[in-house]
Amino acid sequence: MRKLLNTLFVTTENAYLTLEGETVVVHCEKEKIGQFPLHTLSGIVSFSYAGASPALMGACVQKDICLSFCTPHGRFLARTSGISNGNVLLRRAQYRTADDLNASCQIARNMIFGKLYNARWSIERTRRDHKLRIDEQRFQSASETIHKLLPMVLQETNLESLRGLEGAGATAYFSVFDDMILREKENFYFEIRTRRPPLDNINAMLSFAYSLLSNDCGSALESVGLDAYVGFLHRDRPGRSSLALDLMEELRPCLADRFVLTLVNNRIINGNDFSKSESGAVQLSNEGRKKFLKSWQERKQETISHPFLEEKVPWGLIPYIQALLLARYLREDLEAYPPFLWK
């Protein structure tokens, strides 16, 4: 099993990264503000436009360290990539499967099943833990709606119809999402999903969490030899890591959505951790982003029993394990792709 090493998050907006020996050095205004051994890192995520030296990028490629660049507000920009050393037979199998709509649907429906299953379980956890603080009838109705969709998803053979079932499940799930927010309702509320730009505090955090999760899924796929840009549910689009978006679907409710709810309900993030532009776009402030990333790293270190492997693993390894299971399915070592079902 791959060891879960640390991810270095560089949040200083004008930071520049360089290589010094076997370490990564963080510079700001030509002053060294941090230095970290490369052998302790599995990934580096920079939220700075200044970038990194070619020497550091080369070292990260050689040492299999994912070096990713995002805007200061969390939008993914790019990831370093060297000469592809993935298994050519695995990638050929991936491309053949992606070109076959029926074969693509067989994988996609399992991923959507995982997404809806985990969304329903998130609803059920709130019903169990906060029964006296919610409208239980509304939660039960949403849960039952998703439950009825699950067998339909597994039987679906058309991608467009599958997307329709996913949309129906998402509508039911998000209809009670605001009720899962239990504190500071004047600052934290959910009415509708807004992306570019996010227009409220919850959407700002959801977008940031999805950006981090997408990056983790893309890194996991590349690490097992798959092409993160060729997906099954999300079809080819230049510049879009479609398979990473596919893989993260089943992880959104448990790894991203639930994480955001925890930050609010446990008072880790508050209304002062955001800024709003004249256009109405809401973003995490520098301090808010630091709190978010610190908690994200801590969350990834927590362990959970993987439902398919039946072993305790850190949350941070879940994208890697799912990528590995997908690769095994494409190699025909498994009869079907087993989605991650949160328990």
Score class of each variant (00 low, 15 high):
A204Q: 05
R235Y: 10
Q283D: 02
I83A: 02
S42G: 13
V153R: 06
G114E: 10
Q301A: 12
L251I: 06
I146D: 06
F232V: 03
A98N: 05
D216M: 08
V260T: 15
T18D: 11
Q94S: 04
D246M: 09
K185V: 08
D236A: 10
S81F: 07
R79G: 08
Q137H: 07
N266D: 12
S175V: 13
L309I: 02
L56Y: 02
S53E: 03
S141A: 12
F9L: 10
N85V: 08
S275K: 15
G225V: 03
Y49Q: 01
A244N: 02
Q62K: 09
R289P: 00
F113V: 09
I202C: 14
A220L: 05
V10E: 06
Y320M: 00
Q94C: 03
V24P: 01
R258I: 02
A108K: 10
E335K: 13
Q301E: 15
A220V: 05
L243I: 05
V264M: 03
I44T: 09
L263H: 08
S223V: 01
E332R: 13
K185D: 09
K63S: 08
Q322V: 02
Y320S: 03
S223M: 04
L101M: 07
D246E: 09
Q62G: 01
A59H: 01
Y229V: 03
Y117G: 08
P197W: 07
G316T: 08
S68Y: 12
R96L: 14
F188M: 12
D178N: 12
C66D: 14
S46W: 15
G231V: 01
G43H: 06
H130C: 15
K300W: 13
I112H: 08
K291W: 00
I134P: 15
A204W: 04
C28G: 01
Q297V: 15
H130S: 14
S285I: 04
P319R: 06
Q297D: 13
L38V: 04
E20K: 13
L19F: 11
E311C: 01
D64E: 05
E310W: 11
